[in-house]
Design a protein around this nucleic acid. Structure first.
Lengths: 123, 123
DNA sequence: ACTGACGTTTACGTTAACGTCAACTTAATA
DNA sequence: TATTAAGTTGACGTTAACGTAAACGTCAGT
């Protein structure tokens, strides 16, 4: 299909402001095509935005999300050393596994909190 | 045991600064006992700190971590409405499940990135 | 030709989460 | 007793991640 999107298209879809999208570009996380001055976003820009926002939900900084985007970049195979890439991927995976543990621990404690709560309501 | 800790004990253990610990107190996330001016931390303060730091790793704001601490607070059964508490607990659980999905999606994509990377290295 | 919606850049403001002094008190140690 | 070492409270500085406002261009519809 190779659809394109305006800046407000993406802003609406992801419930963020256009200011935010331009800011991400200024930080080097996006680089859309231009028609004159106007930005034109392609599917891969939309994917990048998705990655950024998911990263945010997981507590990543924009700098970290930038690295993530580069991992998915089809060009990166040419421009960067593959071994470096594989290392970064593994680092990210390890970090995610740590987060998984944190989440599981938190889930456990939420269960316990609920138990205590239900006990208390039985008087 | 009912051990107690100095502010620098906790700072060392969790690899944060004393300034940070005092800041959390100023924000209402901790309220240690005092011996005169000096702060004395008990086990439950240490637990609260753990919760805060885990929250941070999961991208929670201090305000959110504060709510979490209140969930684990033994007093909360008396002071707050139990139904409200149960609702909050469920909200937190839902949020964690969303994070889980994000993590799984990211893991999947990391695997794909690794694949592409290994393909490229085979030339 | 005018209006209104959408786009642009530039610049300054804001909030959260601390860091960094400074100036002081108290506790322990040589 | 002098001096570290560790604690305290203020006050101001800093960084990331945007928000807000000004001042302007562009184009479709009336």
């Amino acid at each position: 299909m190779n659809k394109t999107y305006s800046i407000s298209d993406l802003a609406k879809e992801f419930a963020i402001t256009t200011r935010t999208i331009r800011f991400y570009e200024a930080e080097g996380l996006l680089c859309p095509q231009r028609n004159g001055q106007t930005r034109i976003y392609a599917d891969h820009d939309r994917v990048s935005l998705k990655l950024i926002l998911r990263g945010k939900r997981l507590g990543f900084s924009l700098a970290e999300s930038k690295e993530l985007i580069e991992l998915y970049d089809p060009q990166s195979g040419n421009t960067r050393q593959l071994q470096t890439l594989l290392t970064k991927i593994q680092e990210r995976r390890d970090a995610l596994n740590e987060q998984l543990k944190d989440i599981q621990a938190m889930q456990l404690e939420l269960n316990q909190a609920e138990q205590r709560c239900r006990e208390a309501s039985k008087k």
